[in-house]
Design a protein around this nucleic acid. Structure first.
Lengths: 331, 331
DNA sequence: ATTCTTTAAGTAACCGGTTACTTAAACCCT
DNA sequence: AGGGTTTAAGTAACCGGTTACTTAAAGAAT
């Protein structure tokens, strides 16, 4: 491997000069600069990122921790984070915490040891308090933790309300909400939105809880359709669970959307893969990832943003959701 | 941040002794060892991974490059790679090359600069020749590149044959294969398997090409059903494309599987999410990822395996595929 | 002509570990 | 008692960059 010393020797200058040319700082003459650049090209020299990191304590890496890489929502999010990060010269290290608090903590430790410049976390942990005092920027994405944390979320509460409203408008008489796990802010908020709306409008409803995965959703759906045959409008807390409910309904021959209407949440591209297509409360997934990434980089580089302690709002970025009308609700 | 010097000072020993305790090598007395360990715990010292990497030229990181993180096949694969890697104390850096050769090369460069210990690549590049002489282990996963490269793939050829055979057995008279992009070994092999089988059995068939994504699949499907209304057995080169064909068929009211039977490839968990469930030629995705990861680590640590130049077979690990009978083919 | 400022470039310390080399004490043996 | 081996632990070089500090030459100002 070619080092800066090799380049310096060949170019007849000191390592400091080579370093100055590379970093475009300090005083370097035209001549020296030309020769060094020429030599670098000739020798195909690439500065060693690890050595630089050791001295500068910065790595141009951003850690992204997601709870479940197999839920298509997160790859879509990761994709956006990565696109923006790449644009600014950062590498994203994607870690799958597997909804395991310990594994998550191990990752945070490992990443910090590697001098990642920032962290974007879709943490499974309900309170990130342990992390908030760290000396690197942390963005909470799709999760709400400590209020001092810069946060990017969709308007889950409003999404919950919209789902309930939409079902009511489409004539559903007996609503159901399959809520996500308690303690996960997004799930809690969707539930709260749904609940507020059905209460305000005095609608008949029932709530069940289900983790954000397919198999549990299918199991619950089977039981659910037995127990609540009268339910004609189901709002699932994410698209994967909605897909599970849709599948079981179709299997049983329950006519969708005529007898049963179904709404998911997320708007993963996956919902378009099935037929009938899923009606869903879509989050602006790409925008969320991109914003989180941009904010993280701003915090890394500017160390400031407009996040004065006076203005808590500036920590909290809430993006609007929007209904995507598929075929699992009436026209 | 606590450094090894701080620990050494507090424990009244030299940094060498602390290092020896940490790495459990060299001569350290019982007493010294005890004191150092105690001090480490008290000060909550964690050795700096970057400094260690700089000297040892090893990072305990494995780079994993996938072409499309949004195709569920790859997260599933990544999951397996990561599980095994974690088990052995390695961190996986997941990179999305976006099917872009240049982006892929940039990632390889960046990863090597970070002293990753090994690379697992599901490369979009048909020949990895550029990479094969690198001084770190490289595993080709789900792709075939240079024959000197350790390779983990499913038996795609056999899968192609099986799909054709299955469709024939289920009574399809006019077969179609929607093959993946030319130049991608897995797609080529599936195509070859299909072709050999239909030729041997003198079956009526047609072939179309489609990239491994949903939207192109849907567009192609629309055209396909117009052009080949007689086709009654479609074998798609992956599950995502199969899902696109299924969706368009259902939309048009084509009875599946009675009038049109459909087989995908991959066996992503996704195929179970839809109804009717996809019949598919499943790859042992988890096993493939896990094997690639294990081989990579063996190469890193042992630098040997049984890969003598005499035995090219040992470089080539081909795993069997198996039919998963869903509802898109007749019982 | 002298002093001050700017430009240019080298030397060496530093980042935080690991390890080759060295010194010295302890133990063993004849 | 003297020489050899094993054990213990310190010193300093090293990994490959960056940069503070220093020296020196060129240019500007009085």
């Amino acid at each position: 491997m070619v080092t800066i010393k090799d380049v310096a020797r060949r170019a007849n200058v000191s390592v400091a000069t080579v370093s100055r040319v590379l970093n475009q700082n300090g005083y370097v003459s035209e001549d020296a600069s030309r020769i060094v650049l020429q030599t670098i090209k000739e020798m195909n020299y690439r500065p060693n990122a690890v050595a630089r990191t050791l001295y500068k304590k910065t790595s141009n890496m951003i850690g992204l921790i997601v709870p479940d890489i197999e839920n298509p929502f997160f790859p879509e999010l990761a994709r956006a984070v990565e696109d923006v990060a790449n644009l600014y010269g950062y590498t994203v290290v994607l870690c799958n915490s597997d909804q395991d608090v310990e594994k998550e903590q191990r990752y945070v430790e490992a990443l910090k040891q590697k001098y990642v410049d920032g962290l974007i976390m879709t943490s499974h942990q309900s309170q990130f308090n342990d992390y908030v005092d760290e000396n690197i920027p942390i963005i909470a994405l799709d999760r709400i933790g400590d209020e001092r944390l810069t946060t990017v979320v969709a308007n889950n509460y409003e999404g919950g309300r919209q789902a309930a409203h939409y079902l009511k408008e489409k004539g559903a008489k007996s609503l159901a909400h399959i809520r996500g796990p308690k303690g996960i802010a997004s799930a809690d908020e969707r539930y709260r939105g749904f609940l507020d709306y059905v209460m305000e409008n005095e609608l008949e409803y029932v709530v069940e809880e289900c983790s954000f995965q397919l198999s549990p959703a299918e199991r619950l759906a089977a039981r659910f359709y037995d127990e609540y045959p009268q339910a004609d409008g189901v709002f699932a807390s994410n698209d994967v669970v909605a897909a599970g409910f849709l599948k079981v309904a179709l299997k049983r021959g329950i006519p969708v959307p005529d007898q049963l209407q179904l709404i998911g949440f997320d708007g993963i591209s996956f919902g378009h893969m099935m037929y009938p297509e899923l009606t869903t409360v879509a989050q602006p997934i790409y925008e969320m990832g991109a914003l989180a990434s941009r904010l993280c980089i701003k915090l890394i580089e500017g160390k400031e943003i407009d996040q004065s302690k006076n203005d808590p709002e500036s920590f909290f970025h809430q993006l609007p959701v929007y209904m995507v009308e598929g075929d699992t609700t009436k026209k």
